[in-house]
Design a binder for these strands. Structure first.
Length: 385
DNA sequence: CCAGACGTTGTT
DNA sequence: GTCTGG
DNA sequence: CCAGACGTTGTT
DNA sequence: GTCTGG
C-alpha cells in the first residue's frame, strides 16, 4: 500500500524532520521539479533525502525524484512505468533483483505530511488520511535508482518500502509504509553501511499515528488542494454500526478505526484526539516536534539548485514566473513558493506511443495526445484564476 | 555460453 | 546489474 | 493508488 | 476484465 500521499513540505521542513543539522543549509538537486501537493501519486516528483556520498558522515542532499522505481537496467527505449514498483515489500526486498542491488548504496528518505488509504467495503471505497497527531512529517524508508533513456537523459526514481500493517491500522489495510521514527532509525537507514536494516521494518505501532475519513474525490489524481485532507462525516461502512445511532458522526469521527469491531476494546485517547482535531487547521510550519526538541529552528533559506553536469535538460531561467499569484496562494496555505514552470521530462513516449496512434488519428473529446507526463502547475492547484 | 526476467496491490 | 533457466 | 476508457464504418 | 493515464 501507500500509493497516495500529501507533501507540501519545504526543504527546511524536510531537513528538520530528518534531524539534519539545523544551521547547515541542505543542498537541493532538481528541486524545481517539485510540485507541493495534497494528492501525490506515483509518477510525480517528490523531494527525497539522500546521502551525497556513499560513506558514513557523508553530507546529505535533497534530490527531487520521481515516485515509482525504474531500475537502471530498464531498456533505454522502454516507456518508464512508475506504477509497477512504487512500493517494495521489505520482507522480500533482499531477494528481488530490482531492489536488492539498491540496498547497499541507494537508500533514501521520503518526508510527507501524511498518506491516504482506501478502505474497501464491498464495492465502496472510503479513503482515509493518515498522519501524526502532532502533524510532524512522516519519514518513509525508500530506495532510489537512476535510469538513462535513449536520449542520454537520466531519470531518478524511488520506491517506498512497505511492511505488514500495525495492529491499529489492520482494519484499514494489511500493508503500510515503513515509517522511520526517531533520529536513530533515520540515520541508520540513510547510512548505507548499516547492513542489517531489518529491525527498521517493523510497522509503526505508536498511537500517535491517527486518521480520519476524507472525500472520495481524492481518488481522482487531479483533485488537489486543502480539500483533500478535510475530514468528512464518515459514512461508517460497517453495516452493524448503523444500528447504533450514537456511533454516527461525532462518536465515529473521534474514534480512529470506528469501523473496526475490535477497536472498541482498545484504549483510545479520544479527548486528545478531539482537541487536536479542532486545532487541526494547517499551520505554517515549525510543527515538527522531534526536530524542534533536538534543535532550534532556523529561518534562513536553503541553497538553490546546484545542477548536475549530466542534466542536459536543465533550464536556466523562467520568464513566465508569476510571483504574485503564487506567493498569495502560498501565504494562504502555509506553503512555500516554487517557480511555475512546465517541466520537460525525459520519459516522454517514443516509438511505442507513436505506433499506437497511427490507426486512429482522431479521437472523441479532448486530449488523445499526451505530451509527456507533466504534472500540473502550482497555479492549477492553488490558484483561483 | 546466451536469453530472459527483474514488481506490488488487492481480490477471490 | 545479477540471477535463473536452458 | 484510483479513474476512465474500452470501437468500427462511413460520410462530410 | 484489462489497459492507460494521472
Amino acid at each position: 500500500m501507500c500509493g497516495r500521499a500529501r507533501c507540501t513540505l519545504d526543504p527546511q521542513q524536510i531537513a528538520q524532520a530528518c534531524g539534519l543539522v539545523p544551521n547547515a543549509s541542505v543542498p537541493t538537486r532538481q528541486f524545481d521539479r517539485y510540485r507541493p501537493s495534497y494528492n501525490v501519486a506515483p509518477g510525480a516528483y517528490l523531494p527525497v533525502v539522500v546521502a551525497e556520498r556513499k560513506d558514513r558522515e557523508s553530507p546529505v542532499v535533497i534530490h527531487c525524484m520521481k515516485w515509482g522505481l525504474v531500475p537502471s537496467f530498464t531498456k533505454k527505449t522502454e516507456k518508464p512505468d512508475h506504477f509497477r514498483m512504487f512500493n517494495a515489500r521489505s520482507e522480500s526486498v533482499k531477494e528481488k533483483a530490482s531492489f536488492r542491488r539498491l540496498m547497499p548504496k541507494n537508500r533514501c528518505l521520503v518526508a510527507v505530511e501524511g498518506f491516504y488509504e482506501w478502505k474497501k467495503d464491498g464495492s465502496k471505497k472510503q479513503p482515509y488520511y493518515i498522519h501524526f497527531k502532532d502533524h510532524r512529517p512522516l519519514i518513509f524508508a525508500a530506495l532510489y535508482d537512476s535510469w538513462q533513456n535513449s536520449e542520454g537523459d537520466i531519470l531518478y526514481t524511488f520506491t517506498i518500502l512497505t511492511t505488514h500493517c500495525s495492529s491499529a491500522l489492520q482494519w484499514l489495510h494489511d500493508r503500510m509504509p515503513v515509517i522511520l521514527a526517531g533520529k536513530g532509525s533515520i540515520d541508520k537507514w540513510l547510512d548505507n553501511s548499516m547492513s542489517k536494516p531489518e529491525t527498521l521494518w517493523e510497522p509503526y505501532e505508536d498511537s500517535d499515528l491517527v486518521w480520519y475519513p476524507v472525500t472520495p474525490a481524492i481518488g481522482k489524481a487531479t483533485f488537489n488542494g486543502p480539500e483533500c485532507i478535510k475530514e468528512i462525516k464518515p459514512a461508517c461502512e460497517n453495516p452493524l454500526s448503523k444500528f447504533f445511532t450514537k456511533m454516527t458522526d461525532d462518536k465515529c469521527r473521534s474514534q480512529p478505526g470506528c469501523s473496526d469491531p475490535y477497536k472498541e476494546s482498545l484504549p483510545t485517547e479520544v479527548k486528545e484526539e478531539e482537541l487536536d482535531d479542532k486545532e487541526r487547521e494547517e499551520s505554517t510550519g515549525n510543527e515538527c516536534r522531534r526536530a524542534a526538541a533536538s534543535m532550534p529552528l532556523k529561518n534562513e533559506p536553503v541553497d538553490t539548485d546546484t545542477p548536475m553536469k549530466l542534466e542536459s535538460e536543465e533550464i536556466a531561467t523562467d520568464p513566465e514566473l508569476n510571483t504574485e499569484n503564487i506567493s498569495n496562494s502560498f501565504v494562504k496555505d502555509g506553503v512555500f513558493p516554487v517557480k511555475k514552470r512546465e517541466l520537460e521530462d525525459i520519459d516522454t513516449e517514443t516509438t511505442e506511443k507513436v505506433s499506437n496512434f497511427t490507426s486512429n488519428p482522431v479521437k472523441k473529446g479532448r486530449s488523445n495526445k499526451n505530451s509527456g507526463d507533466k504534472q500540473a502547475t502550482l497555479l492549477s492547484y492553488f490558484g483561483k484564476s
